[in-house]
Amino acid sequence: MSVDRVRTAAAARGLEIEIRESPRASSLEEAAALRGITPADIVKTLVVKGRGDQYLFALIPGDRSISWPKLRALLGVNRLRLPEPELALEATGYERGTITPLGSTRDWPVYADERMTGRRVSMGAGAHGWTLFVDADALIASYDATVADISDPIETIR
């Protein structure tokens, strides 16, 4: 089971995590309320595809969106994109909505938005219906992640 892969990977990195069942929610706000946290404390793990077979993980607070211009500038590249679901699965071993760097089939570089530091965050746990909680700073340190401003506020559509 993917959740076991996440637990094993966390233990190998010396990370303390908590994995809980997580009922399906219809919105970010509902998911946060069900977990007893704020939307900013839910971290999305996005698989980003670069050139060829190069990928990376971008960790973005739930109340923000990835900033493509900021991430491209940080990496010094002209093109990045979200891969198709089947490529994300092939690159990580996880389906979209469950992705976490922990236990990924490949250890891709990790880039964390600076706003997630100093928090206990919730993120994908490798399988639908599950979430993990982890100290963001410990997660960042365990991956030697690059911390930078790589997100923008989510624009509200009226």
Rank of each mutant, 00 (worst) to 15 (best):
R35G: 03
G76A: 12
I157H: 13
Q54D: 15
V6P: 01
D149Q: 14
V48M: 09
G93K: 01
V134T: 00
Y111K: 08
R7I: 09
T38P: 02
G62V: 07
G118R: 00
R106Q: 08
S2C: 05
P85N: 03
R20M: 08
S151L: 06
S22Y: 06
L82R: 09
S104G: 13
V147A: 05
P83G: 05
L56C: 14
L132H: 06
P83N: 09
I140Y: 04
V147Q: 07
L46S: 01
E16Q: 15
A112P: 01
M116W: 00
V147G: 14
L102R: 01
L71Q: 03
E84A: 11
S22T: 09
V77D: 10
T45R: 02
I140D: 02
I66C: 07
A31V: 02
G52N: 12
I99L: 05
L82T: 12
A148R: 11
P69Q: 10
D107H: 13
V48D: 01
L34M: 12
T100P: 08
D144P: 00
A32P: 06
D152K: 12
R106H: 11
M1E: 06
L102I: 02
S22W: 05
A138S: 15
L82D: 05
L75N: 08
E86H: 15
S67E: 12
D137R: 01
T8C: 09
